[in-house]
Amino acid sequence: MPQQDNLSGYNSTGSESSVFFLSGIPGLEAMHLWISIPFCSVFTVALLGNCTLLFVIKTEPSLHKPMFYFFTMLAVINLVLPTTTMPKTLSIFWFNSREISFTACLVQMFFLHSFSSIESAVLVAMAFDRYVAICNPLRYVTILTNSVIAKIGLAALTRAVLITVPVLFLLRRLPFCRSHVISHCYCEHMAVVKLACGNTSFNTIYGIFITLFIGGLDLMFITLSYVKILRTVFSLASKEEQLKAFGTCVSHFCAIFMAYTPVVLSSIFHRFGHQVAPHIHILLANVYLLFPPMMNPIVYGVKTREIRYRVHLLLSGKNF
């Protein structure tokens, strides 16, 4: 591609230049059009699934309960995360539209990393929800009030903003006097940091700290919740009661696995997997943004009887 050749030789004489170029998936440029087919399909399913979930929960008063409020938060996150990146990614695949301003890059990065942090916090809140439902069922309604749920959501948003905004300021202070070609489909933090010609050690350390702080701390709280849940479940008298209690946690287990596995692997590969091909990094990063948003509505729809019933009524054209 002639345009790609021009981009690969592009260099800036200083940090004043505000234009960057996204490469797409390095090494797989010839397959971009074919890769766009599953990307676009999964993106479309994710949008339809999460919009349907939000519509069903909003229009059915019987679903206005703590657990479904957390489903709503997760569905909104699952809409924002892929929407932040996929339109630009598909424009690269379809129209070779690689240019992105530095400001747009920072905005994309803010939404990407802040909503990833919010997603992690919501998964912790859902673990707490299951803990209260199983370990303190009689106090469930009094503990998880609408006010408490709103405060949890506000705390998740505040934490995300506080830890993401410094990333943007740290990037703005860096000079970019080398190539402005970002080897990625979107403005991922470390992919942009690698282009800087100044000292990036603090950016790298802060990125690792945030990964450990968010992932490590949240996973610790989730693990503690489930340790207590398991103790309570195994103390139940009958197998039927144990299976019923476990059944309420299956969808949350799936959400945790789908959310954390790709991001942990991607983070490890980015910092320590120097022998891993670049396109593996980027494909894994896109899996993190596309696969959970597509699967979460399906998992929660299949495993939650109320949602399954309401979706069936909606698809059959019957009134709620």
Rank of each mutant, 00 (worst) to 15 (best):
F93G: 03
A285R: 06
A75C: 11
P66A: 06
I256Q: 05
S8T: 00
H180L: 02
N146I: 12
T200I: 13
L315A: 11
S147N: 15
A156L: 03
L313Y: 06
R231E: 00
A104L: 09
A125Y: 15
L313D: 00
M86R: 03
M86K: 04
V165F: 09
F128C: 10
P262Q: 03
L289M: 07
A277R: 02
M73K: 07
T72G: 15
I35A: 13
T232S: 10
S267T: 04
I77Q: 02
P2N: 12
E29V: 05
N96C: 09
I208E: 13
L315D: 01
G49C: 10
I280F: 09
Y131D: 05
C249I: 04
E60Y: 07
N286R: 11
S183C: 05
A259V: 01
V181L: 13
A156P: 04
A75Y: 01
L284K: 02
L138S: 14
P278T: 10
M67V: 12
I268C: 07
I222N: 05
V250R: 13
C254T: 13
S18F: 09
E241L: 11
C197D: 12
F20K: 05
H252F: 11
M190C: 04
G273C: 08
A259P: 01
T142N: 08
L157Y: 02
V141G: 10
C40S: 14
T52M: 15
M294Y: 02
L22D: 04
I118E: 00
S225W: 06
S266I: 09
N78S: 10
L63W: 12
Y69V: 06
I118T: 04
L48F: 14
T72S: 15
S179M: 03
I222A: 09
S8D: 06
F93W: 02
